[in-house]
């Protein structure tokens, strides 16, 4: 639909922390909070994905509601009265962050760490993180081994390395569903991965956990692009991190246009030591909405090689 064809939307007014805010009908509470510049933590929400409201760190208090409500998906209604920093809200946000930290490896999850600091979340609150009670990919729904409780059961497991382009370290996965959405209906329509299993044993998986080359994966890397915790990581970044050579502070970003086809996708080159170490696309790009294909995402080897050849020729 062209912009001018869209029907006009009603404006509605609600109250957030005693401040009035007016938004277009159909907006979410998070939209309203953004308008008021209320900094709200989110993990499973992304601008270019359908809200799944599963992480629950964005919950707010809605007057008259029995429970807290997720601001990322709850539609704003006229007259709503919202509290974003009440004791109830803070307790839930803190506990959710503590529960995640007790379960997964958060070492590469910058935003989660920042939220934890903000809400005073103690990652050790439930004890030291322990191993899963069995191999996660073989878990049967509805059955588990009861543990002693001395440690907090976690999701530690070996990193999955089955292709040259990206690795899957599900010990870092908070199950935000973003990769599944990016692989499926929200971006790529490839459906190589889905949520499998149930409860604590729920996990992101291909069919029967087959390796990616046997799956429908097309290596667009859009799942990696949306992952908030580093569970999905480009191989290059993963190797550099392993060598202690990943230095975000020493990187600069350059936007350019993908050379491969006529669509004109914006590429954001992340450059460290004069070498491209990662390619992304800005989510605000009207062409890509943050998504790329395998060529734009991974097809930069020739640039690196060309520069090296040039340097060698000159040197």
């Amino acid at each position: 639909m062209r912009l001018e064809d869209a029907p006009p939307r009603r404006r509605i007014t609600l109250t957030v922390d005693d401040r009035e805010v007016t938004v277009a009908e159909g907006s979410t509470l998070l939209d309203a909070l953004k308008q008021l510049a209320v900094d709200t933590p989110t993990l499973c929400w992304a601008e270019n994905l359908t809200p799944v409201n599963v992480c629950r760190v964005c919950v707010v208090e809605l007057e008259g509601a029995r429970t807290l409500v997720p601001s990322c998906s709850r539609k704003a209604e006229a007259g709503m009265k919202i509290r974003t920093d009440s004791e109830r809200v803070r307790t839930s946000r803190r506990t959710v962050l503590e529960l995640l930290a007790s379960t997964v490896d958060t070492s590469a999850a910058a935003s989660l760490q920042a939220f934890s600091a903000r809400y005073g979340a103690d990652p050790q609150r439930y004890g030291a993180q322990g191993a899963p009670h069995g191999p996660r990919d073989a878990a049967r729904p509805g059955h588990h081994a009861v543990t002693s409780g001395a440690e907090a059961e976690g999701v530690a497991q070996p990193v999955k390395v089955d292709n040259d382009l990206y690795v899957r370290d599900y010990a870092k996965c908070i199950l935000c569903f973003k990769c599944v959405e990016a692989c499926g209906t929200d971006a790529q329509a490839t459906f190589a991965i889905a949520v499998a299993g149930r409860g604590f044993e729920a996990r992101i998986s291909t069919e029967f956990d087959v390796a990616l080359p046997e799956s429908a994966c097309v290596y667009c890397g859009n799942c990696v692009g949306v992952c908030p915790t580093g569970a999905l990581m480009f191989t290059q970044e993963h190797s550099l991190r392993a060598e202690g050579q990943w230095r975000p502070e020493a990187q600069h970003e350059t936007d350019t246009v993908c050379p491969y086809c006529g669509v004109g996708c914006v590429l954001r080159l992340h450059v460290q030591d004069d070498t491209i170490v990662k390619v992304s696309s800005p989510v605000e790009s009207t062409v890509t909405h943050g998504n790329l294909c395998v060529k734009g995402r991974f097809g930069f080897g020739h640039v690196v090689k060309l520069r090296r050849n040039k340097r060698e020729a000159v040197g």
Binding site: N53, V54, R56, L99, G142, L175, G197, R198, E201
Partner: peptide, 11 residues
């Protein structure tokens, strides 16, 4: 066992 696993508080 019966938690669906979607949201963090329950899972």
């Amino acid at each position: 066992d019966e938690s669906c696993g979607q949201c963090v508080p329950c899972r």
